[in-house]
Amino acid sequence: MAIKKLLNIVLICCTLNAIGQTEIQHKYDIKKASEFSKFLRNSESIDKFKTHFHSELTYYDLYFDTPDLLLFHSSLSLRMRKKEDGEGGYAYVFQLKSEMTFAQKARMEVEERELDFYQLKIDKKTTHLAALLDELFKAFENNGNKEDYLVYEKFTSTISSWIVLKAQAPITPFQKLHFLNPEVFSFHTISTIKPQMIGKSIRKRSHIYLSAQDAKISNANSTQNDLEKDRPQFFIDNPDKIWILESSLDSAVFYPLFETDHTQSEIIEYEVENKISNIDLGKKLIQEYEDQLDSKFGLKSTIDSKYARSKNHFIPSE
């Protein structure tokens, strides 16, 4: 299994560069998490790096894997997510991500959006995938005993049936899995993918920016053209503030959907993502920001995804 895992990691890392569906991300554990949370919430600055706290959002996740954990062993994670969109509504996505490596802090990420037009049947009634996820996460929220995963059985089995039907359909994460390794991820194997854990995250989001003057000194003042369509309102209203990074502080808790001696997995992690088109400059700025934060709050770089961490928690031998 170890050799197989290594081969799969090599395959995915090679693919990362080739397919271009990547994002530059850095993840950290924070020693002084509570102080750091206040720092972000108060939109404080550190050296030239200014922060702008703009939202606290709730995310619900349902993670998937094959019965023999092929995704985990291939350094991949697959999840359906319900997330607050910051405008009073919710968005639903189905995402496949690769794990980060220390050498390459980029993750492959592909996703299927608009889960609301995928139809399925539950109790002989037609519903939409997004609506079903909504029901599932409501049941999760209302479940007094979160370890009692049988509460979710009706929903998770319906989603599993949907996966059986859709393994060969044009669903982006399935297409990508099959492309990455058609032997390991045959259509049959994909059809065996089932929900493995459920959880919730509270995400505090902040823009990290430079003043126009500091941006000019750092050569970051004119490197945003590729991203105009995604430019947040804050930067449209304040064109003298130069957006360089997006960050999120996550407090998450996950529960297994299978028998295990270990109960919940709690995770606090800080994630920083490059937002400028000059990748090398973006990496340099992330490093500078990291150094500043480390000296004040104690940062430890980490690479494991929430799924990998939780899986290691629930099944330590793996």
Binding site: E114, Y118, P170, T172, Q175, F179
Partner: peptide
């Protein structure tokens, strides 16, 4: 029409698929 990893047709490069186009096809597909 939707698989971003299919990049060639008869050894000829296919143009990059636009996300909106892929969504359009997925609506039809579903």
């Amino acid at each position: 029409l939707t698989n971003f990893d299919i990049t060639e047709y008869q050894d000829l490069a296919l143009s990059k698929r636009k996300k909106a186009f892929v969504r359009h096809i997925k609506h039809i597909s579903e």
